[in-house]
Computed example of a mutant assay.
Amino acid sequence: MKPNVYAKNCASRQVLNRIGDTWSVLIVHLLRNGPERYTALQRGIEGISPKMLTQTLRGLERDGLLTRTVHAVVPPRVDYALTPLGESLLELVAALEMWSETHIHDVQVARAAYDAAA
């Protein structure tokens, strides 16, 4: 059966949900310049809870988009890095970031007009 993101149980929809998730997009973009530690990711994404960061990192790792490397040092050090599959998302993620920053004013105007009419 051909993948179809519109089909309720299609695995491609699960992938779309993963890569379209706000936290996933931000994590992928933060890892664009190379490996980062958990604390650097947490500092880089305002508003993400430790639980959500951990869940998102695990999901991205499970889907093959990033690797988790534990270094045998005291205290333990863990680095996260994009895999080649994760790196293949960078152009798309950068385009989403640019679009959102370019069009935020238009969105805010539309929201204000909608709210005023409601």
Rank of each mutant, 00 (worst) to 15 (best):
E46P: 00
I48L: 13
E97G: 02
T69E: 12
R13V: 05
R43S: 15
R58V: 11
S24A: 15
V15Y: 13
A118K: 14
V15S: 08
R18I: 15
V78F: 06
V78M: 06
R58F: 14
C10Y: 08
T22Y: 13
E91P: 04
V15E: 04
N17E: 15
V93W: 04
S88N: 11
L26C: 10
P35D: 03
L96M: 04
G47V: 12
L92C: 04
A11F: 02
R111H: 00
I48G: 10
R58K: 15
G59I: 01
V25E: 11
G20Y: 13
M1C: 00
V15L: 12
Q42L: 15
A112L: 06
K51F: 13
N33M: 07
A110R: 03
L90T: 04
E87V: 05
A11D: 07
E101A: 00
V109G: 07
G47M: 10
L92I: 01
A7M: 04
S88P: 06
W23E: 08
I45Q: 05
R68M: 12
P3W: 02
L31R: 03
H105A: 11
L53D: 09
L90G: 04
I45W: 07
L89F: 11
Y80P: 01
K8M: 06
H105W: 07
H71D: 10
I45M: 11
A95D: 02
H71K: 09
T22M: 14
L16K: 12
M98R: 01
G44T: 06
G47D: 08
P50E: 13
A95L: 08
A110D: 02
A11T: 01
E36D: 07
Y38Q: 15
I19C: 04
E101L: 03
T22W: 13
R77A: 00
P3F: 00
D115R: 12
V93A: 01
T69D: 11
G20V: 14
H29D: 09
T56W: 05
